[in-house]
Design a protein around this nucleic acid. Structure first.
Length: 514
DNA sequence: CGGATTTGACCCGCGC
DNA sequence: GCGCGGGTCAAATCCG
């Protein structure tokens, strides 16, 4: 528990530092950029400038009208354009223009781009910049951009969407929200009609969803969400809303575009049937462990930036030696898709730690202790043979992990998560997103966030089972109180989930600690 | 009777 | 300008 607290404290400090840096940069940018861009460039040469200075030491004086755009923090695009400019320069003997702007790009496989992305370059602000910018990139420049980026640039007002593909035999996926159907349409290329729903929890809630069966596989239901709820969510609606908002946050912030790719995981570790989710999970191995999106991609279909979470893949649990960068990322690198990862599992080491510490021992430890089959009604039904070491994809959990006491495993798992830089960035992005969304709503809706008194809680997975006396017990009871929501009736706990409560709002620091 | 669903009409963006 | 397709509206219909 002490270790957890220490890590919590460290995370809190890290987060506050990130936010501090963010605000500092933001203030710095807003303070300097409008005043005198050339001065800014002079004082703080951008990469573009560095490159241009390096390659073009004797830049001709450029007329103001010739200024085109300046990309900040988009290394590869700069390089690409620099190369293109160089080429043009070589071909025509003169510089066509400079670049000034804040682009939002998804350049796959570009480490620098991903790492250099800062909150200022988030999707929203890019859109704002574009909206405020009178300059329209020339067609030739647009053609140099990637397809996704081009669409994003062309449709700055399109709301990002999150599309969930899931095997479901019901008409719609039970996501915990209440919806009203307002339309149905036969879409091109699919004999199944597309149904349009809007959220009815609040008359002003902008959230809509589309539901359509997959043309190729009628058992697959494609649910596409758009917008952010502007009202408190029920407990059952939280997992999907959290996953979708986090996916959108990742899409917006670009913080997920790590070197190893992004890989969206709702990580709804469930001891029940994925509260709210009502689709079939046929793989027994998945049933007692965190929910995982093995396939998630960013696409721009229908001109909307869309995160697609594919829950239909049989192997929902990440393989023990799973390496997104070498598998999903490479598989998707040829397209405009990218994997997202909300679970702190991009590196094999952290994945091992988390998978071994969090997913596995819950059951084995309790089996060992209670000797009773893992058969809680809230549990979907997997029962691991405790006499056997946990095996996933033919990879055994290391003995040292198997022998760990459960509290040690919690601590180890927490440490592993906390150490993982992807988790930290994802956490920061998710919190920023939530705060941003709430703040945005608060501004747009006259303080709705304050009205709701929303607090955000970070949950750890709860795995209910029964003790030796047949009494229901819960790991949540063994966690330190600050980590446990007062919402004891929660039936499922995502590894990382945010819920909203009606208790007194707290400071950001307290929230982040939570 | 009121809320939810259905369904044809309409609007709008986009490509040609 | 026109056609196409996605998305929404709203009157009609259904249903508990």
């Amino acid at each position: 528990m002490d270790a957890v607290r220490e890590d919590n404290e460290r995370l809190k400090l890290t987060l506050s530092q990130i936010l501090k840096d963010y605000h500092s940069l933001k203030m710095h940018f807003h303070g300097t950029a409008p005043r005198d861009a050339p001065t800014l460039q002079k004082n703080r040469p951008t990469q573009t400038e560095c490159y241009q200075q390096a390659s073009l030491p004797d830049l001709p004086m450029v007329e103001e009208s010739d200024l085109v755009s300046l990309s900040l923090g988009r290394f590869s695009s700069v390089v690409e354009k620099r190369n293109n400019n160089e080429k043009k320069h070589e071909d025509h003997g003169k510089l066509d223009g400079l670049e000034l702007g804040l682009d939002c790009k998804f350049h796959l496989g570009s480490t620098e781009v991903m790492k250099n992305q800062s909150p200022e370059h988030s999707f929203d602000e890019s859109k704002e910049d574009e909206q405020n910018c009178t300059f329209t990139p020339s067609k030739s420049l647009k053609n140099e951009r990637s397809g996704d980026d081009e669409i994003l640039q062309q449709n700055p007002l399109k709301k990002p969407r999150v599309s969930i593909r899931a095997t479901c035999d019901t008409q719609t996926m039970n996501d915990g929200c209440q919806w009203r159907k307002y339309g149905q349409k036969i879409a091109k290329g699919n004999p199944c009609p597309r149904a349009y729903y809007r959220c009815t929890a609040s008359s002003s809630c902008p959230v809509r969803k589309q539901v359509q069966r997959c043309a190729r596989d009628m058992s697959v239901l494609i649910t596409t969400y758009e917008g952010t709820h502007n009202h408190p969510l029920s407990v059952t609606a939280t997992p999907v809303a959290s996953a979708t908002s986090a996916a959108v946050a990742m899409l917006k912030s670009g913080s997920s575009t790590s070197q190893q790719g992004i890989e969206v995981s709702a990580t709804s570790s469930t001891s029940t049937n994925l509260t709210g989710f009502n689709f079939n999970l046929t793989n027994n191995l998945t049933r007692s462990r965190p929910f995982y999106f093995p396939r998630a991609s960013i696409s721009t279909s229908q001109s909307h930036p869309t995160v697609v979470l594919d829950l239909t893949t049989p192997n929902i649990i990440p393989p023990h030696n799973y390496k997104p960068s070498s598998t999903l990322f490479s598989a998707m690198s040829s397209s405009s898709s990218t994997c997202l990862n909300f679970s702190s599992t991009p590196s094999s080491s952290s994945l091992d730690s988390i998978a071994s510490s969090l997913y596995v021992p819950w059951n084995t430890e309790f089996h060992r202790r209670s000797g009773a089959p893992f058969n809680n009604k809230n549990h979907v039904g997997a029962s691991y043979n405790t006499s056997q070491p946990y095996i996933h994809n033919n990879v055994q959990t290391p003995p040292e992990v198997q022998n760990m006491h459960v509290t040690d495993k919690i601590a180890a798992a927490t440490k592993a998560i906390a150490r993982d830089p992807t988790f930290q960035s994802a956490l920061a992005a998710a919190i920023t997103s939530f705060i941003g969304n709430s703040g945005g709503n608060a501004q747009e809706n006259h303080g709705s966030a304050e009205n709701f008194g929303q607090n955000f809680h970070l949950y750890f997975p709860q795995q209910s089972t029964r003790d030796g006396n047949g009494c229901a017990t819960s790991y949540a009871n063994k966690l330190p109180q600050p980590l446990i929501s007062h919402q004891k009736n929660l039936k499922s706990f995502p590894i990382l989930s945010f819920s909203r409560s009606n208790s007194t709002p707290m400071s950001l620091g307290e929230e982040s600690e939570k």
